[in-house]
Design a protein around this nucleic acid. Structure first.
Lengths: 138, 138
DNA sequence: CTTGAACCTCTAGTTGCTAGAGAGATTACC
DNA sequence: GGTAATCTCTCTAGCAACTAGAGGTTCAAG
């Protein structure tokens, strides 16, 4: 049995975060020692590792909840998991697309400024003040 | 003079958001009508447009505050604005880099699954459960 | 002068945690 | 077995950047 600190070390999830996951029902209520401290077994470790990994991959808590349900009802098809992952992938691609557009715009703006003019002539501030100067709509 | 609703329409910033900006000091306290409703002039419109545009470009409220200070002290050099914008650009590039790595990993995971196997064999769930299956560290 | 839309303030909720206070439990060492 | 150091407990409050709703007031059109 692991203490919460030990679990934290093994999964690299911070202690208060583990308690938070229990609060919101992502982790099941932990067993307790005689002194009311949380104790975890291998199942707890694996569940938290799963959560950690999914968070690393950017899944929302809500999506992870769904994935856990799927994991625990092994007679269900894997289609739902695929759908969740693919929706997430689509979101990530959308984010990348938007960030890339921002990058281009920002580069254009910062590139325009020499960096030594007085602020009333600063092209960055001018570009921010006037949307019409933008290359494309955002 | 514009009402808050009119300002909202012109800048495409929602009414409660405008009030929120005033609360946190990003917008100066608005003048009021005899009946205590907010009234804005051209300066208010321009300031909110500036904020809106900077938010669109992903600047944080804090960064925008700094930019506004720069805008209002025209004797200061534009170097600070450049620095803020460049730091932000670096952050965006970092985000893109991390998201792109995630995209590759997620694509690998979702691509592995046929989508018709039973959940206990689902490669997505297996990949999420076992970090060792990952192509690279994240 | 009335009606209905727009406005007011205030509180609380969102996501995914993090920080801190003050008290109790456990463990290591002598 | 004692005691000191380190965990751990619960609880509340805070972060960013808003959004939603309640309950009440003001404005503008007809």
């Amino acid at each position: 049995m692991y203490s919460i600190g030990e679990l934290s070390r093994r999964t690299e999830v911070k202690v208060p975060t583990i308690r938070y996951y229990e609060d919101i029902g992502l982790m099941p209520p932990a067993e307790r020692s005689s002194g009311n401290q949380r104790r975890y077994d291998r199942a707890g470790l694996e569940r938290l590792s799963f959560i950690r990994h999914a968070r690393d991959l950017g899944f929302s808590i809500e999506a992870i909840s769904s994935l856990i349900v799927l994991e625990e009802t092994p007679d269900r098809s894997c289609l739902d998991a695929t759908r969740i992952a693919e929706r997430h992938l689509a979101e990530i691609r959308d984010k990348i697309r938007r960030l890339t557009a921002l990058e281009a715009e920002l580069q254009r703006i910062t590139g325009a400024c020499e960096g030594d003019s007085a602020a009333q002539d600063c092209d960055i501030l001018a570009a921010l003040a006037d949307h019409d100067l933008c290359a494309d709509a955002h």
